[in-house]
């Protein structure tokens, strides 16, 4: 069975911690970091990377365009 796997890369210095990506993620991948970035925002990160399907919903709703999305199909 083929498996679609995704991953996101977040430009944490430009993330403003609005949490809209967290709400948009259908597979509960994203959480907010307790640490803050240079501007004082709690930034998003992949808490459960295994769940990511690379659907890009998080990146699509990100107002600041800080999320880059990758997706790859893995065959058994």
């Amino acid at each position: 069975m083929a498996k679609i796997k995704g991953a996101i890369v977040i430009d944490i210095e430009k993330c403003k911690g609005c949490e809209l990506c967290l709400v948009a993620c259908p597979t509960d991948v994203i959480r907010m970091e307790k640490k803050v970035n240079g501007k004082g925002y709690h930034f998003a990160y992949m808490e459960q990377p295994d769940n990511c399907t690379g659907c890009a919903n998080c990146a699509v709703v990100c107002p600041d365009g800080v999320i880059t999305v990758y997706r790859k199909k893995f065959e058994d």
Binding site: K5, G6, A7, G54, A56, V66, T68, V69, Y70, K72
Partner: peptide, 19 residues
């Protein structure tokens, strides 16, 4: 799938969305 490393996914050829 748990054995798949992020580095295998995060490659230019797998890019689906960027600003």
């Amino acid at each position: 799938a748990r054995n798949i490393k992020l580095e295998e996914i995060i490659r230019d050829e797998n890019l689906v969305y960027t600003k």
